[in-house]
Simulated scan of single mutants.
Amino acid sequence: MPVRLPIRRGFASFLRRGTLAGALTLCTTLGLTAAPATAETLTSGQLSGVELLDAAWSFGEAATSLGLTYGTVDQRDAPARASAGLYLPPGLPPLGGWPLVVWAHGTIGIGNDCAPSHRPQSERNRSYFNQILDNGYAVLAPDYQGLGTGGNFSYYNTDVEAHSILDAVTAVRSLPIPLSAKWVLVGQSEGAHAVMSAASLYNRSGGAAPGLSGVIATGLRSNPAKSLREMFRRSSTGSDNQVGYAGYYLASLEDRHPGSVAPYLSEFGTRFVDKAATACLSDLVATAAGQRPAALVADPDRPTPTFETDLVDLVGYQEDGLPTDLMIGYGTADIDVPPTDTPTYATTLQSLNPGVRITLNEYAGKDHSGAFLASLPDALSFLNTHLH
């Protein structure tokens, strides 16, 4: 298990005197202690803890992997803790610090034990981020509030995702680690929604986390109310993961408005949504035994009486006033998040945001994960343009 290192003034001086890993080891040896801050006493973006992450949870090209704990807000706008991983590339930082990529992860679950920074990385993510790190970029990866710090994550909650990301950037700036002033957001699937949420909040956040200079979103669900309504129909097709996504959405909607979902679930749906609160995606999908989202509700044509309204309330973000350039990527063979509306959505965003450049990249024949990997050369080009 990793050793948790509380923050205190001595920590910074140790980091300045030697290598990062050596300094952390020295901190551990000396047994530095400090009174831990409670969630109620933490301010948003306040760093409260650092740990060395197990190499099994990291990327092969990361020279140093740290876990961070910091203050943010939860789905009820109450002070809360969140966690993140910070992965540094090998070698010495360039003048101005390592250019910073902020990674927003896709669906992994909403239970506390699903935090990506404390689980082995997927083969897909290792392939992608080993190349990002090998190109000299540091990677900051928020877990989203509720994952890894107790409680449950409010799935696809615009405010939770946005604050988790912006507060993580603020928190990492308080470490004496040389990182560039500019940073770029990269998100896949649910993470694509998260980076759009963070970009939407950015201009309204009162100057929090300055330096955002680009956004990359792949596998973006561009019209959740429409696509999810279709996903619940008896005739719907798609990946096996869709029943897991549906379970997490329903759990999040019920948490947000108690009584808005539970009375309309089937017997199977009641058990499944209850299990969704703790089970990570692959385990949750396995328990469905091939059943589709339609099996979760009594009336697949009307999952709940206020389904679309509640979804828009949960996932909606401001689409005009984007603060920086945006790259959207999608695979034509994506059956997890069908890209039917993606080209039209990119055109709409460009009309709403004439002051920034919105690029749409199609990856022919690629599925949900395949498009993410196929986007890497375009992403590296985007990062080079927007971080150097």
Rank of each mutant, 00 (worst) to 15 (best):
H368M: 07
P343Q: 05
T304D: 02
Y87V: 08
T72M: 08
L179C: 01
M231I: 05
R9W: 14
S375D: 13
S48Q: 09
G111V: 05
C280P: 02
V50L: 13
A55L: 12
A171L: 06
L133N: 11
A276T: 10
G18Y: 12
W103P: 01
V337K: 00
E230F: 10
F272I: 03
V285P: 01
E61Q: 15
V356H: 03
H193N: 00
C114D: 08
H163V: 09
F153N: 13
G146F: 14
P116R: 02
S369L: 10
D159P: 01
N353Y: 11
T107V: 13
V312Y: 15
G67A: 15
A194K: 09
G238C: 13
D299Q: 12
D159Q: 03
R17F: 13
L360T: 04
G136W: 12
K366Y: 07
L265V: 11
I7N: 05
R221V: 07
A279S: 14
G331H: 00
Y128C: 14
R233Y: 05
A168C: 05
I216C: 05
L15K: 06
R124I: 08
H193R: 00
S239L: 00
A262T: 08
P142V: 02
F232M: 15
P142Q: 07
I358P: 03
Y345Q: 08
Y128E: 03
V215A: 11
T29D: 07
A246P: 01
T342R: 04
D334E: 03
A276F: 01
T19M: 01
V160F: 06
Y155C: 01
